[in-house]
Structures are given as C-alpha cells and as structure tokens.
Design a protein around this nucleic acid. Structure first.
Lengths: 151, 151
DNA sequence: GTGAATTAGATGTAAATACACTAAATGCCG
DNA sequence: CGGCATTTAGTGTATTTACATCTAATTCAC
C-alpha cells in the first residue's frame, strides 16, 4: 500500500513532502515490528541497539559517549539504558583507567548469549525481516537516497 | 555523510540491513529536526500531526479512530493527545449524533491560526525543510522504494 | 600552578508512551 | 426481544523519554 493510501490522504502531496512523511511512517512501522519481536526477550529497541553496538566492538568496550554516537536514536539517554542493561546482567561497567570521568561498557557473556538467542529465533535473518521485497540494488539505492535526503 | 559514517560502523552491512538502519536513523534525525522547530509553538510532533489531519478534513471533523488511522505513528494514544489539544483550545469535541460511542473532533479557529503561524514561520516551506537536496524525481523514487520496502 | 572552560556521565522532573484494561454503545443472531 | 460479541473511546500504571541541570574530572590559557 502506498503512503497516500496508508495516511488516507486525499490531497496530492509535493514529492519531498511525500518522501518525508513516508520516511517517518515507514520508520514508525518498522519500529513497531522490531519492538514487537524484541518484547518476548524483554528488550526495548534502544537497549537492543546498545547491545548490538557493544557486540560489534567486542572484546573492546566503549564509553557512554562512544555508544551514544553510534546509536540510531541520538537523543537516547545512554546512562540510564546502560544501567538497565547492567541490572539485567547484559553489560559490565568498569571505570576508565587514565580518565576517571569515563566508564567503559562491555557486553557480558549473558548479553552475547541473548543476542545469539535472538539470532537463533531468526530475528536478524533477512528473510524474516521487512525489506525483503527490495532487490539488493534497490536497497542500496534506497540507502543512498536517504543519505542524500539528510544532506 | 553516509549511514556507515553516521553510525561509525566498521563492518560492511548487507544492503537491506543498511537500508533498514538508514530508514530508522533518518527518521530519528528528521523527528529531532521537526520537534525542535515545533517546540517554540508548544506542540509535540504527534499533536502537530493531529492538527494537520484535522485541518485537512476541515470543515468536517473526524472521530478518534479516523484520526488514528491517518496518523504517522499508529501507536499514538489519540484520546489523550486530543484532550491536550482541547485544553489548549486548538480542537473541539462534540458527541457524534447517531452513534453515541463516537466523538467528532474538529480543528478550532485558534488551531487553524496556529497552523497559519507555523506556515508563516516557514515551517512547511520546502526550502526550510530537509530533503531539499533531492530532485522531485529522486523524492518520488525514494517514496516508492519505501512503499516497496514495507511490502 | 591557578582558575575558567570544557568534557563525561548521572540525575531530577514533567511529560509522553506502551500496553492492558474498562465502560458504554451498537450490531447481530437466535 | 434478550444475550453476546464487537466497536469506540477513555483510563490506570509502569516505563521511557525529553530537557535541563548537576557533579566530578580534565584541559587549557595565562
């Protein structure tokens, strides 16, 4: 269903307005999909995002600001999200040697296990995820247009 | 800046994964932009969305579910958002004649004035909004790829 | 070295959100 | 008509978020 139909918009839209609404709508749709699949694992999307980031940097840890700079949603309150993940045992926090303002956050074995479980449940499997209707070339083009959209 | 650079992602991404992250990232970026510009007017993005919808249907009102079905973020709690807008005087609520379960929500003169002020401040002006780097053809193509992404 | 400015992280607080649930009105089917 | 499922809107509540502010550690200018 195209975006006009989704939003039941009667009046025609300018192409850039149409693209903008479509970005927001598709992201909301996607976020809903992701959250719904994460829920059984007790993770929110931002928490999952942090675990992915830390898994990517493993075995190195990252500071809170490093994590923030890699997050999809830059307005996330990483301190509190990390604290939640630490309570659940998915990450560890150690003071940074050399700069005592910083904290180094590392994914724990439990955290890696959780991601493995998610993977086993087919969560990151492209064929279970949205976007499968796009060819690789179209997906690449979509990403490039989004890069250009942001300027 | 492309999405790999934005997310400081070292490992190469699959095209569909790259598109997906880019949709989420760009939407979050855009939402931040919009919220920042709405803030001086005391509106949140979902509230603004509702006002736009009601302005589009003016002089007809819409039921709460009609509004919900037209919103960008389908998980919005329209009852409470409408109540906020009513407190601010931007919308009116009247019981539906014929089906007393329903409520008909209509934008008020004050609400229309607010949108006019936003417009006057250049808020909807394409040249002040993101996406100006895209040609109309590219914007159209972007919207079509997003439609296809959702299936 | 000393003091101002900056950086990193945490936190206070009001507001918004997600999710489930309630309540009222309507439609449906015997 | 009577009873049950459905539709529509609103609400309870815990969690999350946004935004500003705070504290401690570090850097920088002098």
């Amino acid at each position: 269903m195209n975006i006009e139909a989704e939003l039941k918009n009667t009046k025609p839209m300018q192409p850039r307005q149409r693209a903008m609404l479509n970005i927001l709508f598709t992201a909301s749709w996607l976020d809903c999909f992701i959250q719904r699949h994460l829920r059984p694992f007790g993770l929110t999307h931002p928490q999952y995002n942090i675990l992915r980031i830390l898994n990517g940097s493993y075995p190195n840890g990252l500071s809170v600001l490093d994590i923030k700079g890699r997050m999809i949603d830059r307005s996330s309150n990483v301190s509190r999200l990390v604290e939640k993940l630490r309570e659940s045992g998915y990450v560890e926090r150690v003071p940074h040697k050399g700069d005592r303002r910083m904290v180094v956050v590392t994914i724990s074995e439990t955290g890696k296990k959780l991601l493995a479980d998610l993977h086993a449940a087919g969560f990151v499997d492209p064929k279970n995820m949205p976007g499968g209707n796009l060819s690789e070339a179209e997906a690449t083009e979509l990403a490039e247009l989004l890069d250009k959209f942001r300027g």
